[in-house]
Amino acid sequence: MIELQNRVKSLLADKEIDLFIGYGQGTRLPRPLLAGTAEEASGLVFDGACTGNLAVYLTRKEVAGSKKVGIAASYFALRSIVQLLAEHQLREERLRVFALAPGGTLKELAGLAEVERHLAETPVPSLQVEDDWVKEIDAMPPKERWGYWLGELSKCFKCYACRAACPMCYCTKCIVEVNRPQWVQPWAAAASNMEWQINRVMHLAGRCSDCGACGAACPLGLPVHILSHKMVEIVAQRFGTPEGGNALSTFKPDDKENFIG
């Protein structure tokens, strides 16, 4: 922790970075801490409990803008960073990435290649809960599945916290803010809530890091991250690991399906 604080302080002093996006002490879990000065950097922590996806701040203009930023990245945040770089949303030369090696030691990753190597070396954090949840829903008959999702999503009041928490939801004009045509009705009602989630998940297909930030951000605790997780599963099953993080803007002539006749 001291190591990270000192490193960030020296980077800030040398004007190597303008801002460090890291974790600070929270009441239950570590919370995001944006450090622009040495004093602020003294509050930084970074350990195994730091699992929130901070990559979300990288694409927020009011936070990162055109600044040179450093970031303390959890495993899934690293995945998001790789995807954001693939989508040309970040400048590699303006980014300093810090991660934790499996033993808990601090590691500075220079550039995309090292981030990718680190991801390949690090075991994927367990998503057993999500896997089981998806299996449970898959086992339901369709009527029951409809009832389950209708029940869950009719509680949604469209605060769009799931969108705000997502590093990949960086569009400056989201489909739900477009009203010509009005694809998704703006009020919170069962079908339009479902349509919003379908849109969100479809737009994240092949891009989602599976971090679960959407579900964690939901003030009602709706399992919207289970939809994202299911989509990650579908994409992996159908298309394997998408090249350049692309599932829907590319294709293979021999893609296999069994429902088009």
Binding site: I137, I198, V201, M202, L227, M231, I234, D255, E257, F259
Partner: peptide
């Protein structure tokens, strides 16, 4: 149509997961 096919493959499975017929 290749792009559309990919989209339908994902869309159809997602709808099925949500219980849409």
């Amino acid at each position: 149509n290749f792009h559309a096919r990919r989209r339908w493959m994902l869309f159809r499975e997602l709808l099925d997961f949500m219980g849409i017929d």
